[in-house]
Amino acid sequence: MTRAVATDAGGADGGLRALLLPVLGEWYAIELASVREVLRRPAITPLPGAPPTVLGVLNVRGEVVPALDTAALVGLGGLDAVPYVAVLDTTAGPGALGAGAEPRTAILDRRAGAPEGPCAIGRYAVDELVVTLLDGDALAVAASGAPA
């Protein structure tokens, strides 16, 4: 169920180590340094009264961690299934970002235009993919409903 995040995804000077999350056909990235671990088949407990950006909470080694709907946070609607989550540390505490398929690591070193969309801070090309880099702290703020 638990998978440690691989850290051997290269390390070229100037590149940013990132975890890539597939979300409804798009690829999003989170800086790898903020990612604690990736969990497969997370047991998420839904929260009554929670906004659509919140999937629920899950138990991460005894800690109650909010699970967030990455698709809802970036304005893509909502995830229809959550086979994986990436647990990351933000300045507002830990949170788990839902992913529609298995995440992978990569080095982001080729810019691919200006970032677009909520919480986006960069746009990169990885192989044949175009990846949007997200700001973990901005995602946390968006999830909490606090003004950015």
Partner: peptide, 16 residues
């Protein structure tokens, strides 16, 4: 346990 600072206040819940 609290539900984490990441979440907005949820009136129906005291914690977990």
């Amino acid at each position: 346990k609290d539900l984490g600072r990441l979440l907005p206040r949820l009136d129906l819940l005291a914690g977990a």
